[in-house]
């Protein structure tokens, strides 16, 4: 395994993880409607990245696998959503929401740094296909980071001063 395939593997794992986490957060915060809906939209980006990484990986002899067709078992989604609704009238889940957004942000940041590495390696190796992949996916990762940051900025004053 060389540095490029290692980075592809790490990114594939990271994007798959982020897609799953975004969906889990969407379920867990069913009563936070903006988080719920936008997290699902953003999970779509990560899933697409996973697919593209898997496709590109094949040319490098990697079997990375497609994203799971059912992102989250229906039963688990239901349990998470019910749990969210049960505590929807309480302020404490606000802390959990901030923690989850922070984790998402850090996960996305990890992916962003790996995209950066991949782009750098692609340039050094004069690998235009890899560079194209990184240039087309990395901006969306940055947008995922910016979203989590904006959400934290907007809601933390209320959530942290009202406990």
């Amino acid at each position: 395994m060389n540095g490029i395939t290692l980075t592809l593997r790490l990114l594939h794992h990271g994007e798959q993880h982020l897609a799953g986490e975004l969906l889990a957060v969407a379920d867990r915060h069913r009563t936070e409607h903006e988080v719920h809906h936008v997290a699902k939209d953003l999970a779509g980006w990560s899933r697409e990245h996973v697919e593209r990484l898997a496709g590109t990986g094949r040319s490098y002899g990697l079997e990375l696998g497609a994203p799971p067709s059912k992102p989250s078992p229906a039963l688990l989604t239901m349990v998470r959503e019910r749990a969210a609704q049960a505590v929807g009238h309480r302020p404490e889940p606000g802390l959990l929401l901030l923690r989850d957004l922070r984790e998402l942000h850090l996960d996305a940041t990890g992916n962003s740094l790996h995209w950066e590495m991949l782009a750098q390696a692609a340039q050094a190796a004069r690998d235009t296909r890899l560079l194209e992949l990184a240039s087309s996916c990395h901006p969306r990762t940055l947008r995922q980071m910016r979203w989590t940051n904006t959400m934290i900025k907007n809601i933390s004053p209320q959530l942290l001063t009202s406990l």
Binding site: T31, E32, H33, E34, G88, H89, R90, P91, P93, G94, I155, Q158, L159, S162
Partner: peptide, 11 residues
């Protein structure tokens, strides 16, 4: 919409 959410969760 966020104000109604804050009212819902009690802040």
């Amino acid at each position: 919409m966020q104000m109604f959410r804050y009212a819902e969760q009690g802040s």
